[in-house]
Design a protein around this nucleic acid. Sequence first.
DNA 1: TCTATTGTTAAGTGA
DNA 2: TCACTTCCACAATAGA
Length: 462
Amino acid sequence: MATEYERKRLENIKRNYEMLASLNVHGTKSLLSSATKRSRDESKSIKTKKFKKKQKPEEPIVIRQSLRTRGLTPDLKGLPNGFSDKPRRNVVSVSKNESVRVLAPLSLDDVYEGEGSYSEFVDCIVNGEFGDGKACGEKRIDFDEVPLKLEQENVARVVPERILVVKFLPLENVRMVVAGDKSGNVGFWNLDCDDEKNDGIYLFRPHTAPVSSLVFQQNSFSKVISSSYDGLIRLMDVEKSVFDLVYSEDEAIFSLSQRPNDEQSLYFGEGNGMFNVWDIRVGKSSFQWDLHERRINSIDFNPQNTNVMATSSTDGTACLWDLRSMGAKKPKMLKTVQHAKPVHSAYFSPSGHMLATTSHDNYIGILSGANFEDTHMIDHINSTNRWISCFRGVWGWDDSYIFVGNLSKRIDVIAPKLRRTVMELHNPLMKAIPCRIHCHPHNVGMLAGATAGGQVYVWTPK
DNA sequence: TCTATTGTTAAGTGA
DNA sequence: TCACTTCCACAATAGA
C-alpha cells in the first residue's frame, strides 16, 4: 500500500512540476493574489483589518482552461472525497468553488497573500530563540493574583475566514501565533511587530481547503507542518522559503499530530476513520490502521508515556491506544469513552494523568485514575452550528484548568476536579465566539482564542 | 439501507 | 442598520 502511495505521489509531483513550469506560477500567483489583497487605505485601521472577499470563483476556471488549451493532463484525481464524512457527497459542488490543488512544493512567494514584504517574518523565525519544545511543565496559575486581561493591541484579524486551528509558536523572545482557516490560509501574527504596512500579520495560502492542523517540527521550529481537507500535508520551511509537499492523497486529512521525541513520523487521520503513520524521511507510510468508523478529529500523545495515544472521532468515541502492543490489525485499545454524538477532541493533561474529551453531545468528559478508569461527564454546551468550529476543551499549564469556548462570546475555565466552570473570560473586545483556543507553551497565563471571522484574541496575565 | 436534501445557525460584507 | 451570502457540521427527513 505504501509503495502504491509513493508511486502515485511521485507521479503527481512530476505532473504538477510540468504544469507549474508551463503555467509560470509566479505570473499566475500575482493574478490570484491581487483579488485577495487588501487595499492600502484599509490597512490603517488598527489590527482588525478588512479582507477582500475570497478568491473569485472564476480563478480556478482560468487555470483549468489554460491547462486544457496547453494540452496538458489535468489533475485527474480532482478533489478529495472526504470533505464530508459521507463519501461521494458534495464533490461536484465543492470542485466548483475550489482552486486547483498543486501537488508540488510551493515557494513562499507563490502563496503569499499579504502586502509588502514578509522578510521581517522570516528574520523573526530564523533568528528566534526557541524554547525547549516541550510544554512549560506543570506551572500553576492563580487567577486571583494574576488575572488575565485582553487589550486592544492584542486583537487582530489574522486570516480572512473561519479558523480551525490556532497555535502559539514555541518561541521564547517573540510572541507569535499562527492560524489556519477554512479556505486554506495560514496566517502568522507577530504581536511584537508593529510594521505599519502589515501590522505584523503575514498571510499565506498553501492549501485549497480547510487547514485542519498545524504542528511545529520538533527541534527545528522554523518548520511548520500543515494538514488540510485538500488531502495534502505541507512542510513550511522558512529558511528554504518553501511549502514543501510531504503527503498527498484524495482523502481529507482531519487531524495531524507528532509524537514527542519522534520527529521523523507524522501521525494523521484521513477520510472515514483511517489512521496513518507517515515516515517523513523515507516518504512512505509506516502503518495504516482503520481506527474509527468516522473521521478522526484529534490525535494526542500522553506526555508521560508517549506510547499511549488518544483519538477522538465523529463516530461518537474517544479511544486510548497502546502503540507498543499490536492486535490483529491495529494497536491494542486500552479504553473507549462513549459519547452520544461526535467527539471533537481528546487531550491529555500536562501531567498525563487525565484526559479531557469534548463532544457535540454537550458534555466534557474527564478521565482519571491510574488506568483512566474513572470517567466523569461535565455539562457544557458544545453544540455549535455549521458556521462555528466545534469547541475543543484544552488544558492550561497544569491539571487544574480546562479552557473551552462558550457561545456567549466568552471562554469558560473549567476545574476538572470540581467538575464545573469556575471562571469566565469575557471582554467587550471579544466580539465573536472564541471557538478554538491555545495556551502558550512557555508563557503561563497567555492564551489565544480564535473565531469564525478569522480574529485572534490573545489574553495575557496582568 | 443507503443517499440526497433541507434546516439550523454566526458573522462578514456592502449598500 | 439591514439584507444578503456563506455552504464541507450535524441531524432530521425524504427519496430511491
